[in-house]
Nucleic acid binder design. Structure first.
Lengths: 334, 334
DNA sequence: TTTATTTACGAATACGTTTAAGTGGAATGT
DNA sequence: ACATTCCACTTAAACGTATTCGTAAATAAA
């Protein structure tokens, strides 16, 4: 790119210094309105675009945020990104996307590389395989970070989450009220507080209804989709649960397939409810009862708080909301 | 960020010039292996991270690409991004995401702003409301661009598309073979060659089977979801089609809802097939027949060609593949 | 009027990196 | 023996912007 139009071009054309041009472009109070207008007009006319690299190098502002998520091809996360993007857009910020694919090392590589000053702030939904949090602890000391949905307990940062405990407690109650006595739990996000809260909700609901807590009714998520299918099948065959709570969306469809393959009727033989943002939940056969997180809102809130931090707007920790998921009762659990 | 470790730090520590350090970090042939090793070791030890802004400013390389899409919360696009990200990851490239929300002005704002040198290249899937292509024509002259899926006809750039014409021709044939004589077409992407090819496929299939082409059987997509529902309902009530081809996924679920609300049975009263990447298509009631595009592959191919251009690797226009969609026949069309 | 203050601008430098153009000395060629 | 090439490194100048500091003129305060 040669002959690109820079502040220099504008300065020469208007017979003023590049300092003045730069200040005018930044709407500095030091510059008269006349001069500003001239600069703006010419800038528009010549299609001047500020060089982001130079600007960033000098000012240490990138107008860019990073979003680190496990998987983009996931209803929850793509909706969350949607929310994030909407907020970023309003501020003319750029959004970088990084997928960890639930791999902790990839996650560490990303966070490390983002220390170079490429972004002003980071939004993270933690990978489920992450066990060691040292890289996060280092990270939050050096750059503004907001966690969303998938968070870890012991870290000093803003975290936007939903009422995971209550959601799963209520889901379990719902199944119990509908007659389930032997409810299985499909566990995931084992290392994250998010996952643990969901599990606790389930467990406490059983306890509060004087139902036994059978550890064999709990299986954990596997990255391998086939294994998940097998594990679920195994669980259903051996434990004969009459209800299933799936703590992540990825478990829901396999349940349907297993039931179909085993000739089980949902909800008569087995009631199912799943955390999910599937738009097709109402059209499944039978329609799927869901705990639906406000993914879009979560993204917006997370981005909003990140910008509050970037703006150095002070806020109190208890201004950070815990968003509410919606329990949508459909055929699969009735 | 003060006291950050830079090439200067490394140079001072090792008693060599910063030029040597820089070259060593870039694995230049001018530097002895001993020196390189020392630099690399120290860099790792001190957790040196190259400042991207400075690097970019000097070298005009950003190691960043932009992806401009209509909507991220869409199965097709999130899968495509997944493919793009995978390729970018291998090259240590960063990926910026921009959503146009099918708004042409937003699209123009993005392309304009990307002229500032923020990215090395751009991947675009064109907004459906885009009617004027001047901004694209300017864009492709100034920066490497690859279009994917949603492309426009008259532009000199690599375009990764699927066999839209054939897919929709085959879908129509499939419905005709299953007895449909009055097939409606849910039109979308009217301004794009993608949309036109899909329409032509449908029309030609009718013609080849001596079926009349009734323009009243064709309705166009509206951004407003409710209007789409109404339009479909109106179409079904007034034209009484026995088959529907939906040229985008967004039309599929409304069809189901309309049929449910009108008490129509799919597929007995009305057969449906839709372009779609819905993972739940097999579990819908009835399961949805789809034309499924290889979204992930499209993303990978598009990114692959963008990098070929960035690498200045010459390639022939006929190396650019047209990927094949899969027609998956399920209950909704049988 | 004199002095202080404000306004509107310019000169110069720094941000951290890459790179063109050297340089001194060792190795090679004739 | 000398010239030439090559190696491994250094010097210095960019890249385009933001910002500190300075200053002349205009205005206000005394």
């Amino acid at each position: 790119m040669k002959g690109n139009v820079t502040v220099k071009t504008l300065a020469k054309e208007l017979n003023i210094s590049i300092a003045t041009v730069s200040k005018a472009l930044n709407d500095s109070y030091e510059i008269s309105i006349d001069t500003k207008q001239k600069v703006w007009d010419l800038a528009k006319k010549l299609k001047y675009e500020r060089n982001p690299a130079a600007s960033n190098l000098r000012s240490h502002k990138t107008k860019t945020i990073a979003v680190i998520i496990p998987e983009i091809a996931n209803n929850f996360f793509s909706l969350a990104i949607n929310g994030i993007e909407e907020i970023a857009r309003k501020r003319d910020y750029h959004v970088l996307i990084y997928q960890t694919h639930e791999n902790s090392e990839t996650e560490i590589a990303f966070t490390d590389s983002l220390l170079s000053g490429r972004v002003d702030g980071i939004l993270i939904s933690v990978s489920s395989s992450t066990e060691n949090y040292e890289h996060f602890k280092e990270l939050v000391k050096k750059i503004p970070v907001v966690f969303f949905d998938r968070t870890i307990e012991d870290i000093d940062a803003v975290k936007i989450t939903t009422d995971d405990y209550e959601s799963s407690y209520n889901a379990a109650c719902h199944l119990i009220e509908n007659g389930c006595k032997n409810i299985a739990y499909l566990y995931a996000l084992n290392n994250l507080s998010t996952g643990q809260k969901r599990l606790s909700g389930y467990q406490d609901a059983l306890r509060d209804h004087n139902l036994p807590a059978n550890p064999d009714l709990i299986i954990s998520y596997d990255k391998d989709a086939e294994k998940n299918y097998d594990n679920i099948k195994q669980l259903i065959v051996s434990q004969k649960p009459d209800g299933i709570i799936s703590s992540i969306e990825e478990f829901a469809l396999p349940c349907y397939y297993v039931c179909r393959d085993l000739g089980l009727n949902i909800p008569d033989d087995l009631k199912i409810i799943s955390f999910s943002n599937l738009s097709t939940a109402p059209l499944l056969s039978p329609s799927l009862s869901t705990i639906t997180q406000p993914a879009f809102e979560i993204g917006k809130e997370a981005a909003g708080f990140l910008f509050k931090i970037l703006d150095k707007k002070p806020f109190d920790q208890d201004e950070v909301p815990t968003l509410k998921s919606t329990l949508i009762k459909r055929e699969s659990s009735s």
